[in-house]
């Protein structure tokens, strides 16, 4: 069988083991603590410099974002991923008939899909301000829902 990723890893580990076991091939005298400290600092400095350059390179050519809808700065961008829906009896009845029709065709159409379709159609037929006008006024007059306000 051809060597796979695990064989490679075994080999790497073996290489590490041998390097650890063998004394340094270089005949230089061992470094003093001070020399080692200096070298560490130099390496750290090099790494920081490298990272800084990379960061700058990344920042100077930001990726073009193909998505529409630029969001005004400072606004919180996350919206809730789902919104509860409280159907009135009529809605419920209608959703039920849709579900029935779907079942007849051996399909499953979730209510959320019906709502998305409804929203799509509504957005084609009415402007937001028309919707507001239509709905404003006594929407919930029953007063049976919710905690009484003080």
């Amino acid at each position: 069988m051809a060597p796979d990723g695990l064989d490679d890893l075994d080999q790497e580990a073996e290489g590490r083991r041998q390097r650890r076991a063998a004394p340094s091939r270089r005949s230089r005298p061992p470094k003093s603590d001070e020399e080692r400290r200096q070298e560490r600092e130099r390496l750290d400095e090099e790494r920081r410099e490298r990272e800084r350059r990379e960061r700058e390179a990344n920042e100077s050519k930001p990726e073009p974002v193909p998505e529409p809808t630029p969001v005004p700065a400072g606004k919180k961008r996350d919206r809730p991923p789902s919104i509860p829906f409280y159907p009135d009896p009529e809605n419920e009845e209608f959703l039920w008939t849709v579900a029935e029709a779907a079942t007849a065709r051996r399909e499953k159409i979730p209510a959320t899909a019906v709502l998305r379709l409804a929203m799509r159609r509504l957005s084609q037929q009415m402007t937001p301000s028309e919707i507001v006008r239509e709905l404003s006024g006594p929407v919930q007059t029953g007063g049976k829902m919710g905690r009484p306000r003080r």
Partner: peptide, 20 residues
């Protein structure tokens, strides 16, 4: 990828299964 469902009208994955 940069897809944000909350900014989209369409839900391609759901619609694909709804409509086949």
């Amino acid at each position: 990828w940069g897809f944000r469902p909350e900014l989209r009208v369409r839900a391609p994955m759901l619609e694909a299964f709804e409509k086949g």
